[in-house]
Simulated assay, not measured.
Amino acid sequence: MAEIKKWLPNTDNELTPFQLAMMVLSLLSVIVVLILSFAKLDQETKRLLTIIDFSICFIFLSHFFYGLVRSDNKMHYIRHNWIDFIASIPLIEPLRFARLFQILRVIRLIRMAQSFIIPIIKQRRQATLASLLVAMVTILTFSSVLILIVENGIPNANIQTAEDAIWWALVTISTVGYGDYYPVTTAGHVIGGVVIVCGVSFFGVISGYMASLFIAPDEAEKLETQSKEIRSELHEALDRMEINQTMLIKQIAELQHELKQQNTLNK
Rank of each mutant, 00 (worst) to 15 (best):
F58V: 13
R111T: 08
Q126N: 07
T246R: 14
F214S: 02
L25H: 05
L8K: 01
I206F: 08
K267L: 11
I139L: 11
L248A: 08
Q226Y: 11
K228Q: 04
K260N: 04
V194E: 00
P183K: 06
I147S: 02
P155R: 08
I78N: 04
I35K: 07
H257A: 14
L265Y: 10
R124P: 05
I120S: 11
P90G: 03
S115I: 07
T50R: 03
L95W: 09
D12Y: 14
V195A: 03
W82F: 14
L61K: 04
P9A: 12
F64D: 02
V205P: 04
H80N: 15
D72Y: 15
G199C: 06
I149D: 02
P217R: 08
F214N: 01
V190P: 00
F97P: 00
E258T: 10
I89S: 02
T186L: 15
L28F: 06
A157N: 01
I215C: 00
V171E: 04
F97I: 04
E221D: 06
G193R: 02
L68I: 11
G193M: 08
L34S: 08
P217L: 09
F116H: 01
E229R: 08
V106E: 03
S207K: 12
L91I: 15
D239T: 12
L255I: 09
K267P: 00
H76V: 15
P119H: 06
D164R: 05
N10I: 09
F38S: 03
S174D: 06
W167R: 02
P90D: 09
P9H: 07
K250M: 09
V134T: 05
G208P: 00
K6H: 10
I159C: 04
E242Y: 11
E3R: 06
Q256C: 01
F85Q: 03
T175G: 03
T45S: 11
N10Q: 11
D53A: 05
I52N: 01
I206D: 01
G208Y: 07
S227D: 09
L238R: 09
S232T: 10
H63A: 15
Q160S: 07
A253K: 11
T246C: 08
Y182M: 13
V106F: 08
L109R: 09
I59V: 13
Q245G: 10
